[in-house]
């Protein structure tokens, strides 16, 4: 095939936003149509699960393509994983490398994107407000009151079925989880993302044994 393996970053960004919109609107529709309509918090939680699930699927499939061409055998180190994500994955998905990386003892990393492409066109975060998404974990779901509060807060932000910042972050975290789990299958790992009041987007890869 003569194709050089690239497409415009604009069309890829637009497609990903449409995918997120599809998942959000589909959940809203299903929630409303149910014979016993789901409580709003439950609809919100299902949206988060679906977004992360679809992101995971993409990450897993993408790993097959990206890692096929890597010479490394066996498991990657946390530092190796992070550099691969910061350079190769970011170039693959966003057409550039991450802007900045911070780390602590080669076990906790923060990838910083000054102007995250998939949030272009979303309103700026104002004042001292931030947006954050902790990694979804089994224990989090056990804490029913916590997750319900979390769902309630994002539900209040929603206007109809338009995506919000957190949807984009959850989906992207899902992609990272799918990708990284193939490279680092058995070690401890938590991934979360946040947007600060300077509109920088941070993706945290936390390889510490115990995470709170």
């Amino acid at each position: 095939m003569g194709h050089n393996g690239l497409v415009s970053e604009s069309v890829a960004a637009a497609l990903n936003i449409e995918l997120i919109s599809y998942v959000v609107s589909r959940q809203t529709l299903h929630g409303e149509d149910g014979p016993s309509a789901s409580p709003e918090n439950e609809v919100e939680l299902n949206t988060h699960k679906d977004l992360e699930g679809l992101g995971l699927l993409l990450g897993l499939r993408l790993s097959e393509r990206l890692l096929y061409r890597q010479p490394s055998f066996g498991e990657w180190t946390p530092s190796g994983v992070t550099h691969f994500v910061a350079r190769t994955f970011w170039k693959t998905a966003f057409g550039k490398k991450v802007d900045r990386m911070m780390h602590m003892n080669d076990i906790y990393f923060c990838l910083i994107d000054r102007s995250f492409r998939w949030l272009e066109g979303f309103p700026k975060i104002k004042g001292d407000r931030t947006v954050s998404t902790k990694a979804v974990s089994l224990s989090a779901y056990a804490e029913e009151s916590v997750t319900k509060d979390e769902a309630a807060s994002t539900r209040d932000e929603r206007l109809g079925d338009m995506p919000i910042h957190k949807d984009v972050l959850i989906y992207t975290v899902g992609i990272l989880k799918g990708l990284i789990r193939v490279m680092y299958p058995s070690g401890p790992l938590a991934i979360h993302a946040n947007i600060n009041n300077e509109n920088e987007t941070h993706f945290v890869l936390d390889f510490r044994s115990t995470t709170t």
């Binding site: 393996g5 690239l6 415009s8 970053e9 604009s10 890829a12 393509r65 693959t92």
Partner: peptide, 13 residues
């Protein structure tokens, strides 16, 4: 323009 992997695009779609 900025460019991304066609594989990533196809997998997303």
């Amino acid at each position: 323009g900025d460019k991304v992997s066609a594989e990533f695009f196809a997998i997303t779609y």
